[in-house]
């Protein structure tokens, strides 16, 4: 069976699945809107945790958060289920498909056969939609892919029950109740306020302070860890910022797109101006990535210490800009 489901490609999987499911049920909500209302923008350095043998840094809210906040703020009810074993998980999925109900699934990336090898890491918070089944093959709409794709029963079992951090445990979700009319205005203001307070949080590893913290570490690493390790770390920072799903500039461009859409919807000129300012901040992040890549281009060769200071200074400059930005944004709504 195949459900009449329209696939729209998006930059990020979580926004994309929510946006696609909403559109399927007749509510036109764009990807940036989901991201903004769900307060997706963030900067956070998680000390002590290593990802791919490098410090863990994220430019977005924890997996699942964007989705939860969006649903709560616009008043859409989602049914979510997790499973102990694959049989039950598969049975529930099949019943939903029979009822013409496309569902969102949380999956692990490592066993996703349609991803290029280079992109298959043990990351368990990817999202996709299943919109049908033909014989023993599931029809998949993965929002980061250009077109729809498929997975066999066996393959889907593997990705739904991937292990490690954020193990999906067969996690499945779909909307069950909608408000009569989608009122976005209040939700937008709530979303913006939360992002401002996150980014300006008085916590040393979060938001603007987190960016400064990383800048400080970039100054220290070459002396403490050597240039090879530092280059590996820098490469990881840029990957977190630019790899599939951020829409460029560590989600800053998606956020600027959200501010533009929100400004028009609320008739708020200030938000339009701030959208343009966020675009410029996104450009600064891109410049940082370009300069960092000049350093790690050669993985092992000796690099002069002062080039690290240069990129650190760039980050500190970005931190100052974002601090001023979010203070203005807080006052604008």
């Amino acid at each position: 069976m195949e459900i009449n489901f329209t696939h729209h490609q998006s930059a990020h999987c979580e926004n994309g699945v929510v946006s696609n499911l909403m559109k399927h049920h007749g509510f036109q909500v764009s990807e940036p809107m989901v991201f903004g209302i769900g307060s997706g923008l963030l900067f956070c350095y998680i000390p002590f945790l290593k990802v791919n043998h490098a410090p863990a840094i994220t430019y977005r809210a924890m997996p699942g958060k964007i989705f939860n906040r969006f649903a709560k703020r616009v008043g859409v009810q989602f049914k979510r289920e997790k499973f102990k074993n694959y049989k039950a998980a598969k049975a529930r999925l099949d019943t939903n498909l029979k009822k013409d109900n496309p569902v969102g699934l949380q999956v692990g990336v490592y066993h996703l056969t349609y991803f290029p090898d280079e992109y298959r890491f043990h990351f368990n918070a990817h999202n996709l939609v299943v919109y049908g089944k033909q014989d023993h093959t599931y029809l998949i709409s993965d929002p980061v892919m250009e077109t729809v794709t498929t997975l066999t029963e066996k393959e889907l079992e593997k990705v739904r029950f991937a292990k490690g951090a954020f193990a999906p445990k067969g996690h499945m979700y779909y909307p069950i109740a909608f408000p009569k009319e989608l009122k976005l205005e209040k939700a937008i203001v709530k979303g913006i306020k939360k992002t401002c307070s996150d980014m300006l949080a008085p916590v040393p590893f979060v938001g603007v302070r987190g960016i400064k913290k990383i800048a400080g570490l970039i100054r220290k690493w070459p002396k403490k860890k050597g240039t090879k390790v530092t280059n590996h770390y820098l490469g990881q920072i840029v990957r977190m910022q630019e790899e599939i799903g951020t829409g460029g500039g560590g989600f800053r461009y998606i956020y600027a797109a959200f501010l533009q859409e929100a400004g028009k919807l609320l008739g708020n000129e200030k938000l339009l101006e701030l959208s343009a300012e966020m675009t410029k901040i996104g450009d600064l992040w891109r410049d940082f990535a370009v300069d960092a890549s000049r350093i790690y281009r050669n993985r092992t060769t000796k690099v002069a210490i002062d080039v690290y200071d240069d990129v650190a200074t760039q980050l500190e400059h970005i931190a100052e800009k974002e601090k001023a930005f979010f203070k203005k944004l807080k006052k604008a709504v």
Binding site: A11, R239, G247, S275, Y296
Partner: peptide
């Protein structure tokens, strides 16, 4: 993949990208 960017009128649109050197180098290094 999709990127968000502004068109000549300053409006946000999505645009496909085949890749970007700074991140390709980072991925290859990894």
């Amino acid at each position: 993949e999709l990127c968000y960017a502004v068109d000549e009128n300053g409006e946000y649109v999505t645009q496909h990208t085949t890749g970007w050197d700074p991140k390709t180098i980072a991925l290859n290094n990894a």
